[in-house]
Design a protein around this nucleic acid. Structure first.
Lengths: 151, 151
DNA sequence: TATTGTTATACTCTATAACTATA
DNA sequence: TATAGTTATAGAGTATAACAATA
């Protein structure tokens, strides 16, 4: 029988969402702002549309989100060199600093969640969850599922 | 370092939410309707207010939700015998049948999620997750956190 | 005066569709 | 004609507060 698994997943993910929400609370755009900063931290500066696709957001909400992030000096926008219709988004130094802070906060929160597990148990949980996650990833990926839990 | 755990939790809970949402899709009120039916399935018929507290919903949304469930014949309302201000909520036979169906669907979905794990691994995951869940439960319980994931 | 349930109002999000400027 | 980004409009969902009946 599968009874209990849903309960456990629900509680754990709710707890994770709780601490994660705290970690990104000060960030413009909250969890979404964090996802955008993460996406910007690696690789070439994407256009807004590429960025929107990457984090599964509508391009219209990406506009609002970037307005917010830019107003707080975390990202900058500039015309794309190849296509003057598009704009490239860059992670500002302030943004990188903030991102690092949130990452540390999230890592600490995760560790706090696993407080009652010893090292081998925690490792085992990570391994099993990762495998289930990979299973889940293979299935139909419905786009646009972003909420506070997505940190 | 805690990197990766958040990712795994996020994907697993997103996958669970996906299948769970399907399981409760036909139910009036979706995930919330399911939570209400579960709460009604055991114990004495509660008043609307008690029910609202039990599932962490506002009493105003409980009104809408019960209107919907009652219109579909899944629950009934009657004046509370002791307090004529209050109304008792009862699970109708149709409601119990529907509840059983959703429960079976959810259990099947959970099993599908763990398809790549063998029996001891699945059991281990359940155990570890449950322990983490208990840890999480001890921490501050912010009320009113109900969404599609809460199935 | 406080409480249960209901209804009305306002506010926040999100989605859709127009609009501009480039291609 | 199609695309990147922006802006405007409409809708769903939620929260707040006012209301009627009873305690």
């Amino acid at each position: 029988m599968g009874a209990g698994l849903g309960w456990a997943i629900r509680l754990v993910s709710a707890a994770f969402r709780r601490v994660a929400t705290q970690s990104v609370a000060d960030l413009p755009g909250g969890a979404r702002g964090y996802l955008v900063l993460v996406a910007l931290a690696g690789g070439e500066p994407p256009t807004q549309l590429a960025l929107a696709k990457q984090v599964s957001l509508d391009r219209t909400v990406m506009t609002y989100l970037l307005d917010d992030l830019e107003a707080h000096g975390l990202v900058t926008r500039r015309p794309a060199p190849r296509d003057r219709r598009a704009r490239q988004v860059l992670l500002a130094d302030t943004g990188r600093t903030r991102l690092d802070g949130v990452r540390r906060s999230l890592a600490a929160a995760e560790d706090r969640l696993l407080t009652d597990l010893d090292a081998p148990e925690a490792a085992q949980l990570r391994t099993l969850l990762s495998r289930v996650a990979r299973t889940a990833q293979r299935e139909a990926v419905t786009p646009g599922e972003v909420d506070e839990a997505d940190c």
